[in-house]
Amino acid sequence: MIFLYIILALFALFVGLGIYSQKGEAPGLEHKRLKELGSKPNAVSSEAGVQPERAVAPLQASFKNVADAIEATGGTITSRTESYLSATYMSRIFKFVDDVEVRSDGDICHIRSASRVGYSDNGVNRKRVEKIRTYLQSPS
C-alpha cells in the first residue's frame, strides 16, 4: 500500500511541475546573444563558449526556414522579431514546457533549447535541435 502512495505522490509532483513549467517565458537575448546556459544539464546551445557536452552546431538555414521547421516539428512560436524568435514545446504526458530560441546571424541561425524545470532532460533538447536540423535538410 505504501508503494501505491509513493507512486501517487510522484505522479502528483510531476503534474505540479508540468503546471509550474507552463508559467514563464524564454529568457531572451543578453548582449545581442542567446542567454548563457545555467548550471543544470537540461539545455543545449550553439552560441560560442558553451561546454562541449552541451554544444550543438548552429543551423545553416534562413531564419524563415528555421521558423517553419520549428512549427512543423511541434513548436509554437511565442515571440518573433526580424532576427529573434522564441517558441515552446510541450511534453505529452506531464505537459512540461521547454523553450527554443533562435537568433539570426547572417547566413546561420544560433539555437538554444532548454527545459524550464527539472535537472536533467535525458537528451530531449539535443534531440529536438537535431529533429529541427533534419527537417531543414529534408527535400521540400
Rank of each mutant, 00 (worst) to 15 (best):
V66S: 04
L8N: 01
V44D: 04
K127P: 02
I70A: 04
Y5H: 09
V117M: 12
G16W: 12
S138Q: 15
E101P: 03
T88Y: 05
E30V: 14
S115N: 03
R80C: 04
I2D: 10
N122Q: 14
N125K: 08
Y84M: 10
E36A: 15
L34N: 03
T81I: 09
N65C: 09
G16D: 08
L85T: 07
E30S: 14
P58R: 06
C109H: 00
R128I: 08
T88P: 00
I108G: 02
K127F: 05
D105A: 15
P58K: 05
R92D: 13
F63I: 10
E36P: 06
I2F: 14
E47G: 06
Y119A: 01
Y119V: 12
E130P: 02
V117D: 03
S138D: 09
V100S: 07
V102E: 03
T78F: 05
S39L: 13
V129R: 04
R133Y: 04
P27M: 06
I19E: 11
F63M: 10
Y89S: 07
G74C: 05
G118A: 11
Y119Q: 07
A43N: 08
E30Y: 11
R133L: 08
I2H: 10
G123F: 08
D98V: 10
H31G: 01
E130C: 06
I93F: 14
Y89W: 09
G118Y: 06
L85A: 07
